[in-house]
Amino acid sequence: MSKDPNKWIFQNKLLKDVENFRLKLKYKGDKTKIETSKILSEAVRTGSLDISFNLNTLPKKKFQKLTSLTKLTMSAAGASELISEIKYLPNLVYLNLTGNYLVNLPFEITSCSALRTLLLASNKFTKVPSYLTKLTLLEELSFEKCELENISGINANVQLRKLNLCGNKISQLPEEFMQLTSLEHLDISDNLLEKLPEDFGKLIKIKELHVERNRLEYLPNSMNCMVKLRVLQIKPNPIKVFPRIWENMIELDLLDLSSLKIEELPAEVVPQLRGFREIILSNNLITALPTELSTLGEVVERIDLKNNPIIKWPITVRQMKNIEFNWSSININNVTE
Rank of each mutant, 00 (worst) to 15 (best):
E324R: 14
P309H: 10
V18F: 15
D4G: 01
E144H: 13
L82F: 14
N248C: 11
K24F: 07
R274M: 14
E198C: 13
T110K: 11
S2H: 12
N20Y: 09
I51M: 08
Q272L: 04
L15K: 15
I303L: 12
E264I: 07
T73G: 04
G167R: 00
L273C: 03
P243L: 03
K240T: 13
L95C: 06
P59D: 07
E278W: 11
K13P: 00
K13A: 12
P5D: 06
K60Q: 10
L305N: 01
N12S: 14
N283L: 09
L163K: 04
N308I: 04
T57W: 02
K127H: 13
R277M: 05
K71L: 04
R318W: 12
L102D: 03
T181N: 15
L105P: 03
E85K: 09
Q64K: 03
P243N: 06
R213C: 14
S113E: 10
Q64W: 02
I206G: 00
D17Y: 15
L115D: 01
I245W: 02
T117A: 11
L180M: 10
L165D: 06
A288I: 06
A76P: 05
P238Y: 08
L293K: 05
R213E: 14
D253I: 13
K24T: 11
E147S: 12
G275M: 06
D256N: 15
S189Q: 06
G275A: 09
F53M: 12
